[in-house]
């Protein structure tokens, strides 16, 4: 499998911004994949693997976030992350790890 590098900008449409549930879902999606994922807001960048760090980016509704993914499934991971910023959660993702 070849390494791909993806950089995608999303606008946060979830009326609550990136909240605790979003952050948890992000870490799960990233945890299941094989790519390294970072989130960037303006000049701040954090690994998308830890809830506290994601929350500390403080992403408010209407703001832009960049998803940076490097790895064999970078595009798939980015695809799976995108709806989370719109507040669309797949409950299978959220509970999957503990099922």
């Amino acid at each position: 499998m070849s390494e791909t590098s993806i950089r995608r900008t999303v606008v946060v449409t979830d009326p609550q911004g990136v909240h605790i549930r979003t952050a948890l879902a992000i870490t799960k999606v990233v945890g299941r994949g094989k790519s390294e994922v970072k989130l960037v807001k303006q000049d701040r960048r954090t690994m998308a693997t830890e809830v506290l760090q994601i929350l500390s980016l403080v992403v408010e509704p209407g703001e832009r976030v960049e998803i940076e993914a490097i790895g064999p499934d970078a595009a798939e991971v980015a695809d799976a992350l995108e709806p989370l910023f719109a507040g669309k959660f797949d409950s299978a993702i959220e509970s999957g790890e503990h099922a």
Partner: peptide, 23 residues
Amino acid sequence: SAELGDKYAAIFEAHLQMLQDSR
């Protein structure tokens, strides 16, 4: 989770993650 389902337990899972945050 047993009482209300996984969805409601997610907050504790997030807390757990935050507590163990490596940074």
